[in-house]
Simulated scan of single mutants.
Amino acid sequence: MKQLFLTLITICLVHLVSAQEQIKLSKAQAKYEYSEIISNSRILSSKPRIRVDFGKAYSFWKDKRMLLDAQGKEVKFNSSIDALNYMASFGWELVNSYSVIESDDSKSFYYVLKRELTVEEKEEDRYN
């Protein structure tokens, strides 16, 4: 009798507990694409270290969040505003900005950008 009772309880619990269905992301349904400029102050340098996060995976050992020009060389910026102007020339617009001050020497500035996707960009669905 106990086994039957435990079996029924287990079946009921399994039926009630269900995992969420994973939704496939589709760029065709998106209107905007977002990115984030990360600007860190550098010790003994007036130029900041600029990285751009497009939402792709990166590792600590290989940080590929720097921008590359047509020849594959890293684009260097004089300031955060220089990086914002560069991104604006490609249709990106500033949404929000915030800063994190970790110490007197270490400051980070974050700029959230967006741009409207074109029909061609929606068709090249990178998520699927």
Rank of each mutant, 00 (worst) to 15 (best):
T10F: 14
N85E: 10
N128R: 13
V17S: 14
F77G: 03
S46C: 03
S59Q: 02
E116K: 15
N85Q: 09
D104W: 01
S108W: 01
R51Q: 12
K76P: 04
D82L: 02
V119S: 14
L67A: 06
V95N: 06
M66N: 11
E124H: 11
V17F: 15
S41G: 13
Q20V: 12
S106T: 09
M87A: 10
K56Q: 06
E124F: 08
F5S: 08
R126S: 11
V95M: 11
E36M: 15
E123R: 11
L84F: 05
Y34R: 00
Q22W: 07
F5T: 13
L117I: 04
S108V: 13
S41N: 14
S45E: 11
E21I: 13
V52R: 03
V75L: 01
L44S: 14
K27A: 08
Y86M: 05
N96M: 04
S97K: 09
S80I: 05
A30R: 13
K31H: 08
R42Q: 15
Y86R: 04
K107Q: 11
Y127I: 05
Q22N: 10
F109W: 07
E120H: 07
L68T: 07
I38S: 04
N85K: 12
G91Q: 06
S108I: 12
L67H: 03
S97T: 09
D63P: 02
K27Q: 14
A28D: 06
R115V: 07
I23A: 13
N96T: 08
D69G: 10
A19W: 10
K114W: 02
V14L: 14
F109G: 06
F90A: 15
Y110Q: 04
A70N: 14
G55H: 01
T10D: 01
S59V: 00
E33I: 03
I43E: 15
M1C: 07
S59I: 00
T7A: 13
S39I: 07
E121T: 04
S80P: 06
H15C: 11
D105H: 07
Y127C: 01
V100M: 09
K56I: 01
Q71H: 12
Y98Q: 09
E123S: 15
R126W: 02
K107F: 03
A57D: 00
N40I: 04
N85M: 05
D53N: 15
Y58F: 12
I81W: 09
I50H: 03
S99N: 12
Y32H: 11
R65V: 00
Q29G: 10
G72V: 09
R51V: 06
T118D: 05
Y127N: 06
S108H: 12
L13I: 13
E93V: 11
N85P: 01
L68Y: 10
A19D: 12
F90D: 11
L13V: 13
N78P: 00
S46D: 10
L8M: 14
K76N: 10
A57C: 02
S103V: 05
V95G: 03
Q71N: 14
K122V: 06
K56A: 07
F90Y: 15
S26D: 13
C12L: 14
D105L: 15
E21T: 15
Y110E: 06
S59R: 00
D104Q: 13
S89V: 02
T10G: 11
Q3D: 12
F54K: 00
E116D: 04
V119Q: 14
V112F: 08
E33L: 03
L68Q: 08
S59K: 00
I101K: 15
E116M: 10
S97P: 00
Y32R: 03
E124Y: 07
D53E: 04
